[in-house]
Nucleic acid binder design. Structure first.
Lengths: 363, 363
DNA sequence: TTGTAGGCGTTATCAT
DNA sequence: ATGATAACGCCTACAA
């Protein structure tokens, strides 16, 4: 035991491997309600009722069943249960990635509500890939989950895969990354007003030459935030020169830095910048340090999302806080409503949630 | 449509709700292989074979089946498939939280390997709760997943729930937060040497009065990192006064700040600090700013984990990079090996992965 | 290559 | 309150 066998190279990492012991999977046959029934000389139906504490059962027999079940180490087979009952008590969630606070927080919100109603949550990430998203949605549907919550990948422009699932009678709720085409309940952030509000804040700080750094306008969220920004500028009678609008395909630290370098090469330098997401704001901040630009004196920076990081950097970043946990909760509530309604009429709702302004040092 | 109904107060957020349209779930009965068989006047067995492109089937009939399946919008019922085949092609993953880079990255690593073999991954978070962890593991087992990957919650000291699942014949692999008691394959970071290495780095920078800021020693990882730290100090003939060892129950920004304030109140002030995790290092850095402590001149700071944030703050944080993605990949490989082995002998392995030193401005 | 039939573990619908 | 028994949708010997 714990005998060192040798050195192994794993993706350029030195790893050492300790051999343990060998193992063979045990192949005990699982106990079923049939076994319980036989042992107690009663029918499987009765056992089944006892296990789901149905109303129509004698208290004593029920206790006897439960006792034996524990003794014999019985565990229900959820596949069989689902197959026969047509209910899984499972919600499926599809998000672009779990590796960002907004998404992981909203998932926590979903779980929070789901668990209260005895639902489990299956999480899948599309990794911003349309093909993978389609696969996942299909798998989820084929696994007979009771409902599916989706935030679309960046690539997703076609919603047939979701429509198809809806046609199969599976409730769907969209959140954050939604679309107009589908007739479902939706939960979104008010991106337009959020962007407008934070832009107005910058203006109120005396800035009047504000640039925009964001993602592709083809993505709904990006467009909405830009429109909000634009609206605030227009309302204030301010102009947005074309070279002050920078679009990056991906939201990365590095792209943001490049954006600032690009901006600082124009002869009409901005005095503030509104970034589509916090990660961009943080990249912008880093570029400013390299270029010796004083924040916020020379350039104010504003982000969106209120990621933890926006608080930790220095100067800390002014941003719009999105209530991600609550968005998840709300989405879960909506889908549970629909599930509960079953074949009754449900009212589809669109919930638009207001982000809140968090003023920090960068403005 | 789009008729505004009213204002709703959700957790102190102003939300407005747009009524959409009402909806009734359609209740079409799903197509089954039986339906396909009937339509083609062949047996269900043949259809089944065609769908899983078994070798023993005529190419023409197979094509006919596939064509009809598409036409009739057939979708396999995974519950039924799993029930009868006893294979789900699903891996279950249990992590403390998905809301931290290390965990979300390792999940991505797991998915990366799993998808190559046609496995899907079900993600669950225990939220550091033992009870929830037990529930999840039980659910996973009852859902007949093909294997379970677990990183224990902080609270978990008793491993009966996992042993039980193993006894049921379900392969289990532990990663990162593991235990000695269970006879499974395991993948861990070399915390001892990682901590030792980064401490030695601090020493090589001329620091000789290094403090430690970390979690409860009851948690294996915490202890290992502390021991590595201690070992480096001892090797260098350096002393660690008791007041330079600070334990925090939770790894938060605020706790770390308090730790630094506490340290700076002792008369023997340290000239460097090794923090158990990056988030603590970042908190420490913030406290330094508030206290006017120059980093790294007066106090060097080192973290562990290489979270994105450690790169974004200024000065950026020296840290140990844990190859989280690779750890996930490895864990997935190990469990797939075990699954594939089935009732053959498997060799259980313990893989110890070396973190790498990332030197940045804070040292 | 195809068909028959039994089984997977549970729930649901009848009776009793 | 309990028991038979037929689904649920698919897989898999075994037989043809």
């Amino acid at each position: 035991m714990n005998l060192r066998i040798g050195w192994v190279n794993l993706n350029q990492l030195i790893t050492y491997r300790l051999s343990y012991y060998s193992k063979i999977l045990p192949l005990k046959k699982p106990i079923t309600i049939k076994d319980l029934a036989k042992s107690l000389n009663i029918s499987v139906a009765t056992v089944s009722r006892a296990l789901r504490n149905s109303s129509e059962i004698n208290e004593e027999t029920k206790q006897a069943v439960l006792k034996l079940a524990k003794e014999m180490d019985y565990h229900p087979n959820l596949l069989a249960r689902g197959l026969s009952s047509k209910k899984s008590k499972i919600l499926g969630v599809v998000v672009p990635t779990i590796n960002r606070q907004f998404w992981s927080n909203s998932i926590s919100g979903i779980e929070n509500i789901a668990y209260q109603d005895g639902y489990k949550v299956m999480i899948f990430q599309s990794t911003e890939s349309f093909i993978k998203e389609v696969e996942i949605v299909e798998t989820l549907a084929n696994s007979r989950v009771d409902g599916i919550l989706i935030a679309f990948s960046k690539e997703t422009k076609d919603y047939a895969h979701v429509q198809q699932v809806m046609d199969r009678g599976i409730p769907v709720v969209l959140f954050e990354r939604v679309c107009e085409e589908l007739e479902t309940s939706k939960v979104v952030t008010d991106d337009f007003f959020g962007a407008k509000k934070i832009t107005q804040h910058l203006i109120s700080r005396g800035k009047n030459n504000i640039a925009y750094l964001g993602g592709p306008m083809s993505l709904g969220v990006c467009k909405d935030r830009f429109l909000g920004f634009q609206s605030a500028m227009t309302d204030a009678g301010l102009n947005i020169p074309a070279e002050h609008i920078i679009e990056t395909e991906e939201f990365t630290f590095e792209n943001a830095k490049n954006g600032i370098y690009q901006l600082w090469n124009t002869k009409n330098k901005p005095d503030a910048i509104f970034c589509f997401a916090d990660i961009l704001a943080i990249g912008a901040l880093d570029a400013c340090k390299e270029l010796g630009i004083k924040v916020p004196e020379q350039l104010s920076i504003a982000g969106f999302g209120n990621d933890d990081t926006s608080r930790f950097v220095s100067p800390s970043i002014t941003t719009m806080a999105q209530p991600s946990f609550e968005i998840g909760q709300l989405a879960a509530k909506l889908i549970l409503e629909e599930i509960t309604a079953g074949n009754e009429v449900t009212i589809l709702k669109k919930e638009v949630i207001q982000p809140t302004l968090v003023i920090r040092e960068s403005s």
